[in-house]
Design a binder for these strands. Sequence first.
DNA 1: TATTGTTATACTCTATAACTATA
DNA 2: TATAGTTATAGAGTATAACAATA
Lengths: 155, 155
Amino acid sequence: MTGTTTPPPATDLGLAESLVRLASLVQRTFVEVGRRYDLTAQQATLLCRLAEGPVGMTELTRMLHLEKSSLTGLVDRVERRGLVARTPHSCDRRAHLVVLTPQGARAATDYHDDLIARLDTMTCELPPDDRDRLERLVAQVLAGATGCTSAERAE
Amino acid sequence: MTGTTTPPPATDLGLAESLVRLASLVQRTFVEVGRRYDLTAQQATLLCRLAEGPVGMTELTRMLHLEKSSLTGLVDRVERRGLVARTPHSCDRRAHLVVLTPQGARAATDYHDDLIARLDTMTCELPPDDRDRLERLVAQVLAGATGCTSAERAE
DNA sequence: TATTGTTATACTCTATAACTATA
DNA sequence: TATAGTTATAGAGTATAACAATA
């Protein structure tokens, strides 16, 4: 029903440039929402990753794309605030699992819900069909980048 | 030509969650490309903002969403590396314009071109129609967020 | 020897508060 | 007084290198 077949975008930044701006906008939203809960974007990301269950340090470095020493510091800071705890691994005595405390779980949920609500607000003026289309297109980009990148294959 | 009218996305994360992942992916790309040129994401962003022409410090704080003292430091570091220079403002003796040096202009161009190329690669598996659609949808989200946000109106 | 994680160190990034110089 | 910008300070985030403990 969109009259023309595929008209070029009105304000033509190019797709890549548009993605840069979108990413910056979303990134700023991470930070703004984080401030409400006194969480940095990195801390919030960590908590959200732990919401599904305990994760080992090494696995976390892969999930967050951090060096292990960087993760040590990040976990230290949220542990000091009582949001996570290090628990011994059952079989490997070198390893630790990082788990959310009840307080950390609450923070993770609150942050996540708030973030999603804000992002939904950002797209709420799009008609439902367009939102679905956008989601599907983004998913395709993510599938390509996450699944088939040469960097990912090399790893 | 897309058979169904509006089928729900296959892997249904929801739109907001998809945007979170996309933003993280793009952000990581900023950092990776930056490393090639020995630039942090923030330094690269600054250089790219200056590519259109000299900008005053106060205006830069608005463009980069930084406090003025944070900007002082950021400009200091790239100035120390010879990528930008502070030049006096013609009429206001308190003010400075930040300008790219020739070396900084080269870095800005190289970084920008590399970044755009990488992001284009990320979307190059999409059919041209889908790329246009995606660009238009992202542009709509940006227009809404940049133009009509309550936060923006409040400012 | 390899892996898991921490410590030491150095830098960048950021904000708040206090300050200087100019308008 | 208000604005443009810097300085001082403190804390978060990150990486590299060296290390300890366990596998």
